[in-house]
Design a binder for these strands. Structure first.
Length: 452
DNA sequence: TGAAATGTTGGGGCG
DNA sequence: ACGCCCCAACATTTC
């Protein structure tokens, strides 16, 4: 064996795990010493640098990854700054021979990745964060799919469910000087309910196991009812790569409905990859002229959960308090912002980006476009959620509302969905839904017939 | 992964 | 027994 073999840089980003991590696994297989790296880069992503809630999650996730590496006699080396500059510096200083990493799909990141082979030709990128590389899946005309169902059908046709990779048995590590996590001063307790024990690779697998045992069987029927808490709650773990989609699918392959939710995640990355403007621009071109208005007062009330519609306010307060919102409630709250308050979907996406612990550029952008009706396979714009009906349908007892809106906790299910005469502390509706809906539909009609 | 508006049907009350 | 009306239930269309 070489006395002083040159090391491989293993770059972690949204793959903060040691199991089923192809970059780490294959780097270890070379028998060279590796340098496990995390670079907090607030510059390269531009507008889309990590939001506050995500950074808080990141803090604990890195801690957890660090522990896992230390358990195996390795370490995690932390750097802050421009990714390419830091890599270049480390390559020169430590005579590294290659960068190993798992592919990412954010537009800014794809540009960075492209340069790795120039820096070191024997660098290797792996598929670790998705089941399918976006370029793998095309229709019969060799075009990207625009609709989820055929996209996912095709994915399932080519899906080979292989067992996930084990953690590398040994991680021989070259030690280098590094910054410490505590010196980064990441917010470590925002939102207030964040608990370190629920974050990291082990926690992710514990949640998956819990879901498989207790919730998956009734997932299809129960998933839309926020008070039942029957969803997997894996989204932040998947976002940070504490668990891989392959690990999830391998364990849950019997449940088609749940699998298709992993499919929507794939479809979101697929969209971002084929349409890099996804976070900024409506995909359907006619929507670029939609007369949304940024109303600061309405926005503030929506953000704070003070719209006067109980299910919307419960959701927005859940978000602020926990950094999470149930999927059904996200759709209702998003529809309300776009179609009742008439605020552009991008403004809603920005808020979610700052406040969600699972904020994910692909999922967030594509989902907002879906609700707005301007995205791939989107709900048509005229599908307007009625916040009162949705509330009655999906939180019939008001249990979810009561969890987050204490002013309404004393109300029975008869009044809780329309509580305005019964709860003096609770705000009156910001807008009348009937009127707002009509206004939104009129504007949509104008859009289709064209402005005068 | 909508909901309202509009249309159709059929049972029952009633003269 | 019949026709008429009402309206709930369901279906279809429209936004």
């Amino acid at each position: 064996m070489n006395q002083n073999p040159s090391p491989i840089l293993v770059l972690f980003r949204q793959d903060l795990r040691i199991t089923d991590n192809p970059a780490l696994f294959h780097a270890c297989k070379t028998s060279r010493p590796i340098i496990p790296l995390y670079i907090l880069d607030d510059k390269s992503p531009g507008k889309w640098k990590m939001g506050a809630a995500s950074k808080s999650w990141l803090h604990y996730s890195l801690k957890s990854l660090e522990e896992s590496l230390v358990e195996r006699g390795s370490q995690l080396f932390l750097y802050k700054g421009d990714t390419l500059e830091i890599l270049q510096h480390l390559i020169e200083k430590y005579k590294a021979t290659a960068i190993y990493w798992n592919h990412g799909y954010e537009p800014y990141w794809k540009k960075i990745e492209k340069k790795f082979k120039n820096l070191l030709p024997s660098s290797e990128g792996f598929k670790g964060s998705l089941l399918f590389e976006p370029t793998e899946i095309v229709n019969k005309q060799a075009e990207p799919f625009k609709v989820f169902t055929p996209f996912w059908r095709r994915c399932l046709e080519v899906l080979e469910i292989e067992p996930p990779l084990p953690a590398p048995p040994t991680i021989s590590t070259k030690t280098i000087p590094t910054e410490s996590l505590s010196s980064w001063k990441l917010p470590s307790s925002y939102p207030e309910c964040l608990e370190s024990s629920g974050i990291g690779e082990k926690a992710a697998h514990a949640k998956l196991q819990y879901f498989l045992r207790h919730a998956m069987a009734t997932y299809a029927e129960d998933r839309d009812f926020p008070s039942l808490e029957c969803t997997s709650k894996l989204s932040p773990h998947l976002h940070f790569g504490e668990i891989s989609p392959r690990q999830v699918v391998y364990a849950a392959q019997k449940n088609a409905k749940f699998l298709s939710e992993v499919g929507w995640r794939e479809f979101s990355y697929y969209q971002l990859s084929h349409f890099p403007d996804l976070p900024e621009k409506s995909w359907r071109p006619e929507f670029v002229h939609f007369p949304w208005k940024n109303n600061a007062h309405f926005l503030e009330k929506w953000q704070q959960g003070q719209t006067g519609y109980p299910i919307v306010d419960a959701g927005m307060r859940e978000l602020k308090k926990t950094g999470i919102m149930h999927n059904r409630v996200r759709m209702i709250a998003a529809s309300f912002l776009i179609k009742d308050l008439f605020i552009p979907w991008q403004t809603g996406a920005d808020w979610f980006w700052q406040t969600l612990v699972d904020a994910d550029l692909a999922s967030n952008s594509s989902s907002w476009q879906w609700v707005a009706g301007c995205g791939f396979d989107a709900a048509p714009f005229f599908r307007v959620f009625n916040p009162i009906l949705q509330s009655k349908k999906f939180d019939p007892e008001g249990l979810y509302i009561k969890q987050f809106v204490p002013e309404l906790a004393h109300l029975s299910k008869t009044f809780i969905h329309e509580p305005w005469d019964k709860a003096p502390d609770y705000p009156k509706p910001l807008v009348n839904h009937e009127e707002a809906r009509k206004k939104a539909l009129e504007s949509f009609k104008m859009l289709r017939t064209g402005p005068l």
